[in-house]
Design a binder for these strands. Structure first.
Length: 882
RNA sequence: GGGCACAUAGCUCAGAGGUAGAGCACUACGUUGACAUCGUAGUGGUCGUAGGUUCGAUCCCUGCUGUGCCCACCA
């Protein structure tokens, strides 16, 4: 027997789903859920909890539906983030900055990884995520390394990957190139300094506006627009760069915008993307004035060398002012590029890097989605996907850090590049190239962008390039569930890489979930202190409650506002379910494997079977279309509003001997014991069906309660064999519900105590009144405290659907208020009826509306008319009572 | 500058071309042997705004306003 107190902690810890996750169904239809590998940098946050819960629901649902489900887990090495984190720790422990070696760092990170991935796996278990942990993978494990090298070499040989010397976004803190996607634009306050550039002969000057005066040392020209008459006279002449007196030409270039600044712009090709282009167009030299930390290098006057860029800026401005070369300073808002990981302002920098020709890889990836081979849910995210891929630029994949996939390229002493899957391959190539053995090759120091390997995750996890059954089965039979923020980073790259390596889409569906926010709708962040830890929530309310709540709130394409309060809704529901099973147990309900719903005879049982079947069919539709919110809601309503509020109350008189009279059974020629058994079986059956469909969302409690009821196996409910005729049962139960509600409502509105015993008369012809009273009399008595009689002296009449109920009263009651209510209702009904009539009188409506709608309108008018005349009759009789 | 999404009850959100829904909150009553993490009955909305399409629009289309987000540019 269940405890009175529902305590998730008492049983959730006892379940491990590893076994069932690794139990596969050999010949069934394959289905794979690709878990986005969490970074090894930290704990799981509430966003992970949402993402993983939703995919776990899918995985469990598919398993119940008989698919061969592979739910593949893993963790991501997360290059830059991890390295920054571990470096920080090492430095904090007293190691001096320059002294850290590659070997030492990697050793420390591997140590960190072992610990961290263990923590993550435990957190996944706690959340009940049913991955197959025996197949855990790591984006930097040996198999991944092989696959990454193979793809790298293949892309290189096909001309889709190359080494180039060009301008990239450079992070001076990390001291590495980063990709365009890792750049975040932020608006900051800045200044625009207007600086005099004097002509060579000193007779005149041009004023140039810049937000970066420290870069004047890298200036190689001043550009003006060819159409700008103001500066015509300067073109072709030379101006003097302040402070260093270098002479540079004034050139014409369309890039100079007469509207912006002063219309004359200084050109610094080494430190600005636009200037770089101008430089190329005009064959200007390139003067790089920064080192990799964005400190000024030997190209600048000695007093500036080694200075940081911001310090240099102040100094330059200072000197300019002293030399009266500063015309004015404007305050401006400017949007600057920051590194998303380091948080520092980035520098454009010309370096040697490896690039992927993303434009070519994007074409099949775009086509796959255009052709509908991959569907985004919700669909509108496809726009974002197309927008990005259609304007994609070369993808810089090399990083000047140590943690990651080392680039499989080797250099000869003359700089000759040998790209190979292994060092021995490279040596072979070198032998071939140089024609001699002893040429020493040096491997590229850099590593690959983390997303290079993440993009291969769908086939890396299936042991590609090894040909195997799982790879053939599961590749392209996957779903990916993830947030919109990594559509560019991850989803699109998986599609590009997948189309390239496998010539086929990796997955057919991409479910994009919303962002979890705090209760005010703010983004969660450590600095705001509004972060909700899913594991703390699990401790407080149980993992099932957290899962249920996340599912309940996840309507497609919408963000979720999370709070403890909302999780209570989930917890309360599970408590209710717990008590449902407790009630069933107390009344001897046990799941009976041989129970046949077709055999039940009591209309209450037929009715609840009907309701259960309908609801669960709807739940199935919801799961199929990934409407987790609908699924959660439907189960909630089915259990709480239908099973608890009605059915369980209906059958109490039957289950509880003392309240049972022979009448209840006799109407159906049933032995009391048989009827009781019927109800017990039905109740257990209904509860078990609901528990089964709840299982994907709340697996712990479902397992526990299912077991308590004696249904050891969780399988998806099947209703195909139910052939019952429900018509009469539904009509009767609907009337029953209406009677009970009406009596309760009348009692409340006249401020009668709910437990006051009253007599009622049922007048009507929709069902056989006598039979109805015989079957349901006791139930109505128990639930509404009224007894059916043949007549009453004084009564308050109530209009039911197809019947009138007279509620007997033994004293005069002020019915004025009630009369007013009824009048309001008449007015309401009339309004609705008139609206329907108005349409019916409209020829266009009759001709153009569908037949069903017209029929429905006719029916509505009829029903409303009847109702109105009944209410009017009631008003009349109430008035007579006064 | 280009694009996407959203706007429904006090709050959080579902919803459908044809009679507006839930949970929470609120009001009143209630501890009857599953459950006070509960029960019963209520209150509460011209579905952001202006047009258009339609027999009919809260739903479809367009403009507007507001909110959030993405991309691009900035001397």
């Amino acid at each position: 027997m269940l405890d009175k107190i529902f305590d998730a902690k008492s049983f959730e810890g006892n379940f491990s789903f590893d076994m069932e996750a690794s139990t596969r169904i050999p010949n069934a239809e394959p289905f794979m859920v690709l878990l986005p590998p969490p970074n090894i940098t930290g704990n799981l946050h509430i966003g992970h909890a949402l993402c993983f819960t939703l995919q776990d629901i899918v995985a469990r649902y598919k398993r119940l539906k008989g698919f061969d489900v592979l739910f593949q887990p893993g963790v991501d090495h997360a290059g830059i983030v991890t390295q920054l984190l571990v470096e920080k720790q090492i430095y904090a422990s007293g190691v001096e900055k320059g002294s850290l070696t590659r070997e030492k760092l990697l050793k420390e990170i591997w140590f960190w990884k072992e610990n961290s991935s263990g923590v993550i796996i435990n957190q996944l278990r706690k959340l009940g995520i049913s991955c197959d942990f025996s197949r855990q993978r790591f984006t930097l494990d040996e198999k991944s390394k092989k696959a990454v090298s193979k793809i790298f070499v293949s892309l290189y040989r096909n001309g889709l990957l190359y080494r180039g010397h060009r301008m990239v976004n450079w992070d001076p803190l990390i001291e590495s190139a980063i990709s365009d996607l890792e750049v975040v634009e932020r608006e900051v306050d800045g200044h625009l300094w207007h600086i005099k550039y004097e002509l060579e002969n000193g007779e005149d000057y041009i004023v140039v506006a810049t937000s970066r005066p420290e870069t004047i040392f890298g200036d190689v020209a001043v550009a003006v627009n060819p159409k700008d008459s103001r500066y015509k006279k300067f073109v072709g002449k030379k101006v003097r760069i302040p402070l260093i007196d270098r002479l540079v030409p004034v050139i014409e270039d369309k890039y100079a915008d007469p509207e912006k600044g002063t219309g004359a712009v200084k050109i610094t090709p080494a430190h600005d993307f636009n200037d770089y282009e101008v430089g190329l167009r005009n064959k200007l030299p390139i003067i790089d004035i920064f080192n990799e930390k964005a400190e000024l290098n030997k190209e600048v006057p000695e007093m500036f060398q080694g200075m940081g860029r911001f310090e240099a800026r102040n100094k330059v401005v200072d000197l300019l002012e002293k030399k009266e070369l500063l015309v004015k300073v404007e305050d401006i808002k400017q949007t600057l590029p920051f590194g998303d990981r380091s948080g520092v302002i980035l520098e454009p920098r010309i370096t040697h890097q490896w690039f992927v020709n993303a434009e070519k890889l994007a074409r099949p990836a775009i086509k796959a989605v255009k052709d509908g081979k991959i569907k985004f849910i919700p669909k509108h995210w496809e726009n974002l996907y197309f927008e990005w891929l259609e304007n994609i630029r070369p993808w810089c994949v090399s990083r000047q850090i140590w943690w990651g996939h080392r680039i499989p390229a080797w250099y000869g002493p003359d700089g000759q590049v040998f790209v190979a899957e292994s060092e021995s391959d490279a040596n072979k190539q070198a032998l071939n190239f140089y024609g001699k053995h002893d040429v020493k090759l040096v491997q590229d120091e850099d590593v690959l962008d983390t997303w290079f390997s993440s993009g291969m995750w769908p086939f890396i996890t299936l042991d590609w390039p090894e040909d195997n059954e799982d790879l053939r089965k599961f590749y392209s039979n996957m779903i990916v569930v993830t947030g919109f923020d990594i559509i560019f980073f991850w989803v699109s790259r998986m599609i590009m890489m997948g189309m390239y390596a496998m010539k086929e889409v990796p997955f057919k569906e991409v479910y994009i979930h919303g962002l979890v926010r705090d209760k005010h709708g703010n983004k969660m962040s450590k600095s705001k202190g509004n972060v909700i830890d899913p594991l703390i929530l699990c401790d407080k309310y149980g993992a099932d409650a957290v899962r249920y709540t996340l599912a309940y709130m996840s309507s497609p394409g919408r963000d979720l506002k999370m709070s403890d309060r909302i999780v209570e809704t989930g917890r309360n529901f599970l408590t209710k379910l717990w008590n449902v099973v407790r009630f069933a147990q107390m009344n001897g309900c046990v799941y009976n494997n041989g129970f046949d719903p077709n055999e039940v005879s009591h209309p209450l049982n037929k009715w609840i079977i009907f309701e259960t079947r309908n609801t669960i069919n709807a739940v199935e539709e919801a799961y199929k279309s990934y409407r987790f919110d609908d699924a959660a809601r439907l189960i909630y309503q089915g259990i709480w509003n239908t099973l608890c509020d009605w059915y369980m109350e209906f059958v109490k008189p039957i289950l509880q001997q003392s309240a049972l009279t022979d009448d209840t059974a006799e109407g159906y020629n049933l032995d009391q014991t048989l009827l009781k058994k019927d109800v017990r079986d039905t109740m257990a059956w209904v509860i078990v069906q609901f528990i089964r469909v709840l299982y994907p969302i709340a697996p712990f409690i479902s397992k526990k309660l299912s077991g308590e009821l004696g249904a050891t196996e969780v399988v998806w409910p099947e209703f195909d064999n139910i052939q019952l005729d429900f018509t009469d049962s539904i009509r009767q139960v609907e009337l029953l519900k209406e009677i009970i509600s009406s009596v309760r409502s009348i009692k409340q509105s006249f401020r009668m105590p709910a437990n006051e015993e009253l007599n009622v008369v049922l007048e009507g012809n929709s069902v056989e009144t006598a039979d109805f009273i015989e079957i349901y009399g006791k139930i109505v008595h128990k639930m509404a405290n009224v007894s059916f009689v043949d007549s009453v002296a004084m009564s308050i009449p109530v209009v039911l659907n197809g019947a009138i109920l007279r509620i007997g009263i033994d004293r005069k009651i002020d019915v004025q208020e009630k009369i007013a209510d009824f009048r309001k209702e008449v007015a309401n009904c009339s309004k609705m009826r008139d609206a329907a009539l108005f349409r019916l009188n409209n020829e266009d409506f009759r001709n153009k509306a569908t037949e069903d709608v017209v029929t429905e309108h006719n029916k509505r008018v009829e029903v409303l008319s009847e109702k109105i005349s009944k209410i009017e009759y009631i008003i009349h009789s109430l008035e007579a009572m006064q």
